[in-house]
Design a protein around this nucleic acid. Structure first.
Lengths: 233, 233
DNA sequence: ATATGTAATTATGTAGTACATATATGGCAA
DNA sequence: TTGCCATATATGTACTACATAATTACATAT
């Protein structure tokens, strides 16, 4: 007799809270509701969905965390513009994440910094270049750059400014969320034998490229600047 | 008499669920707990934190959504590897997001596809190139590519493969989550006067670059391929 | 008449109890 | 050992009661 072609139970065990959550998100999306639109009361939702208010609140609690809804004491709940990154934010703790995830994030950074050249060029201003120069000059004059921590400070400062210059707030916020992750990886890296810092392209070189070069030049130079990190792949 | 220099209340109104959530995340992180480690029981947490089990469950419900914890019926709860993107996933509905967020996401895609060249080259295989060629050939032989929908199908297929070739699962998953957003924007775009599709660099050109070129070449060509989209900036 | 104070109303926020459900565990029997 | 059954236990769900804050309306004072 042949084995029955049944996979050993998906073992879903989807809780009511899960179902209600999906249900609500679908509802919000399908009805084309916009920020500011009011939602039914908790008790109404509970009754309509045939579950306890408790379950509804667990689902709502999740949406509230993501910024999708806001609740006010007597007014009720309203839909609001969700925060793209607040869901990622809570998860980005190096101690909790796996090596695999950390690697993915690390690579993501390299991809972003090389890829964002066109955005930077499209929104280039005199002031922003000035800011970059200030940072690079302070770095050059600082006698403490033989210490990892000091180098890291300027490195972060410089690159953060570049993210800011893309004019893309999501990108910028994402980068600031990633900083703890990189600090963590840099500390790990610093225990290794080879120093992970000096590429052939300096911050001054990058600034010069912004002034007189093209996005393509900049990508190439940024890639070169990040070579010590790319070598880890 | 001068107006008093008092700002009108920050009006925080942080709920207990919020506090407990933060508290738990901090706890998990500070104690260097790893995936698989058991957590205290709900009742214990409630008692220890001095709140009702209800509140604890709302906070736990959030962490569960993010994949940080898993609960089993009698066993209790265990810490688990959080899912980096599940928090973003639920929010990525074009109807709900603002124009600003959509723009940010759209730009993010352009940044990623131009920036991921080095990852692709580092993990290049014969088979993956073959796959790309298959897609491009099917596209070339398909008589229906005058229709937007058909063009889009091959476009997505080709670019998805590229994400996959980076060997970065987070990146790949992120892209698949973004697809609905792009479909949405393409539909909007298709109502405009100019056709948003043909750059000077074809899919065949990109494949050729992968075979005989360098990451730098590829970035440049990909940028060129995406020119119709970049023009929107 | 404007301003201030006060009470009623209402929806979310929190607490607590009770029970349902699933599952690990141990004991008993074949 | 293997298999079955009872039991204990932690999460999942339901329900009730009350706290809190904010809206509304009304009443009072200057």
């Amino acid at each position: 007799m042949q084995k029955p072609n049944i996979r050993p139970k998906p073992v879903k065990a989807i809780s009511l809270a899960d179902q209600v959550e999906n249900n609500l998100i679908e509802y919000l999306n399908n009805n084309n509701l916009k920020a500011g639109d009011p939602l039914p009361k908790e008790t109404e939702l509970a009754e309509y969905l045939g579950v306890s208010r408790n379950v509804v609140r667990e689902a709502l609690s999740r949406l509230r965390m993501l910024g999708m809804i806001e609740s006010k004491k007597r007014k009720g709940m309203v839909l609001s513009e969700p925060d793209l990154l607040s869901g990622v934010e809570r998860v980005l703790y190096p101690n909790i994440l796996s090596e695999e995830s950390m690697k993915d994030i690390f690579e993501l950074r390299l991809v972003l910094e090389v890829g964002m050249a066109d955005l930077i060029f499209a929104r280039l201003t005199e002031e922003s270049i000035k800011s970059l120069e200030d940072i690079a000059n302070r770095e050059a004059r600082d006698p403490g750059t033989n210490k990892l921590k000091t180098r890291l400070k300027y490195e972060i400062s410089f690159h953060s400014k570049l993210y800011e210059m893309t004019g893309n707030n999501t990108l910028k916020r994402f980068q600031s969320m990633l900083l703890p992750v990189f600090n963590y990886m840099m500390e790990v890296e610093s225990t290794l034998e080879h120093k992970p810092e000096s590429g052939k392209i300096s911050h001054f070189d990058l600034i010069e490229t912004l002034k007189t070069g093209t996005p393509s030049n900049f990508r190439k130079n940024m890639r070169e600047h990040l070579t010590p990190h790319y070598d880890r792949l």
